[in-house]
Design a protein around this nucleic acid. Structure first.
Lengths: 338, 338
DNA sequence: TTGGCTTAGTTAAACGTTTAACTTGTGAGT
DNA sequence: ACTCACAAGTTAAACGTTTAACTAAGCCAA
């Protein structure tokens, strides 16, 4: 491997000059620049990361932190976001270092190795992470950015799904199909995202002049899953049999709903229209394929890197918030009301 | 951030001693070791990656190279392998740096930045990569390991699916269900993996004393996909209407087959049993859920890292090959022949 | 007493860059 | 002719480690 010294010798200049040429400093005359550049090319020299990192105190890496349960869960939501960051990072000459942490991070737990080793220039945190972790990270003065989670305290760059708008859009789609008896199946309201989707649901109803009816909402189940989707719709139809459309807060619930309706001889979409949220891979294989709101997971990762790089390069002081829009994907589980 | 100097001062020793304590060198007395260790703990000192990397010429990183098409394809096969490497790497104190390269890598293309910057200690290559790339990488004397691809020249550590055995197992499962008229839908034989599955198919037949019939094999389609699965079964059933079981070389084809059979009023599994290969997420949502051979993608990544780390630590000279087994997942698309 | 061996450290160079501070040469202004 | 400013480089320190080579002290055998 050639070093900067080899280049300097070959071009008959000092190593400082070589460095200045590499950084395109205008203290060097065009003529010398050309000569040095030729030497660089001839030797196919490239500065070493460690040496550069040591003196500049920049690693060229961005850390990505996930809790273990988020990483290993079956639905690959956060790993898609992660892949988004990996994908775009190279355009900005950064590499991503991934690590997971335990969801019950405590005082005894060590911080991620890349923090201790000074091996990242900034950190992206995806999903809910413990407050204590955030506090401890801040001691290291590393820029932080959040994806799909907004810490209760502090003012950070953040990327969130535009859940309110998406909730409105989904509901509006059902309204456009002439539905008025529209249910919302929440699972629970623990997660802010779901509550926001619910707000969007209510806003769309209001805008259309449909009075909101509490009995059309099921929100007292542990969390949104296939199993609880099945349970939710069971109760819904017993208390409101005249429902013609259902907005499930995510696709997992929608799949449970679909199973129930099939088992009870109700046709989707003819008897009941159904819309989900997320756009999981399985949706297109369902019978009928599920209409849903597509969440651009990859894009969320991309946006997070953009925020981080903006910050790193320009040291923008006031942190930006990005709301990424979800997209309505109309398939065959929704149609006009009879 | 405290440096090694701060520790040395606090413990009243030279920085060399601190370094030796960190590396647990037995030239230092237990007493001194304790004193230094206390200073390290009190200051919560941790050596810096760049400085360590500069002098030791080790980055602590492993590179992961994929061709762009492999990364962006919808079926997340290679990205799962990648996540497997990410997942396990931390146990060995390595980080993974990902990059993609163009599938038509030529002389003009630059090598991945992490190679030029001396920022990886070894490289894992997943899927088919251009020979030229391999040649160019070897000039850098970096250890290479391959996953799901075996370069035609050279002797490298490699992780492959045990396709022959898996092909046998899948076929054996159908035989165990008393089927004898068993078709194999290959799409094409371009990819060695598929040809190996086919070999397994033939071996299982032979072992069971079933004579192999060429007409039960469709292998002249461009590649295995849903679309070509549909076409393949169309032709198959016209030339061999007495088939009772089908082994599709991957799940994509199997899904196409399933659609055809449904559309033509054939019941799966009662009229025809169907087995796929891969275990994609959608399988469980199909009607009926698809019996298949599960490929442990995550495990493949894990094995690749193990090979690489073994090599890096012990410099094992003779490269190991690992065959990871696929696992039969019996669902509802196969049953006993009538 | 001398020499040699062992133990427990220390000294100092080296790794490959970046960059602040300095130098040298040239031309313009007075 | 002298100063001053500027252009185009160079010198040398610094970044934070690791490690080969050295040293000093203690002990033991001859």
């Amino acid at each position: 491997m050639p070093t900067i010294k080899d280049v300097a010798k070959k071009a008959n200049v000092s190593i400082a000059t070589v460095s200045l040429v590499i950084h395109n400093n205008n203290r060097i005359s065009p003529k010398t620049k050309r000569r040095v550049q030729k030497a660089i090319d001839d030797l196919s020299y490239h500065p070493t990361r460690s040496a550069r990192g040591l003196v500049s105190q920049k690693s060229g890496n961005i850390g990505f932190i996930l809790t273990e349960d988020h990483f290993t869960r079956s639905e690959p939501f956060y790993s898609q976001i992660f892949l988004g960051t990996e994908f775009i990072a190279r355009n900005y000459e950064y590499y991503i270092l991934l690590t997971t942490i335990t969801p019950n991070f405590s005082g005894e737990d060590r911080l991620p190795r890349f923090v201790l080793e000074n091996n990242v220039d900034g950190i992206i945190l995806a999903g809910k992470v413990p407050d204590l972790l955030i506090e401890r990270l801040q001691e290291y003065k590393l820029p932080l950015a959040f994806v799909d989670y907004y810490p209760s305290t502090g003012n950070f760059p953040v990327v969130m799904i535009d859940n309110i708008n998406a909730g409105m859009q989904a509901t509006q789609h059902l309204i456009d199909c002439n539905h008025t008896k529209i249910a919302f199946l929440a699972g629970d309201f623990e997660h802010p995202s779901i509550h926001e989707r619910f707000q969007g649901y209510k806003m769309a109803l209001e805008k259309a002049g449909i009075t909101f009816d509490e009995r059309n909402v099921i929100s007292d189940l542990p969390y949104p899953s296939r199993k609880y989707g099945y349970q939710a719709v069971t109760r819904l139809l017993s208390q409101c049999p005249d429902i013609t459309a259902i907005f499930a807060c995510n696709d997992a619930m929608a799949i449970g709903v679909l199973r129930y309706l099939k088992e009870h001889g109700l046709s989707v979409p003819h008897d009941i229209s159904l819309i989900g949220f997320d756009d999981v891979e399985a949706d297109i294989y369902l019978d009928p394929p599920l209409t849903t709101m597509r969440v651009p997971k990859i894009d969320m990762g991309i946006e997070a890197i953009r925020l981080m790089v903006d910050f790193l390069n320009n040291n923008i002081s006031n942190p930006r918030k990005v709301l990424v829009p979800a997209e309505l994907i109309v398939r065959q589980s929704t149609c006009s009301a009879a």
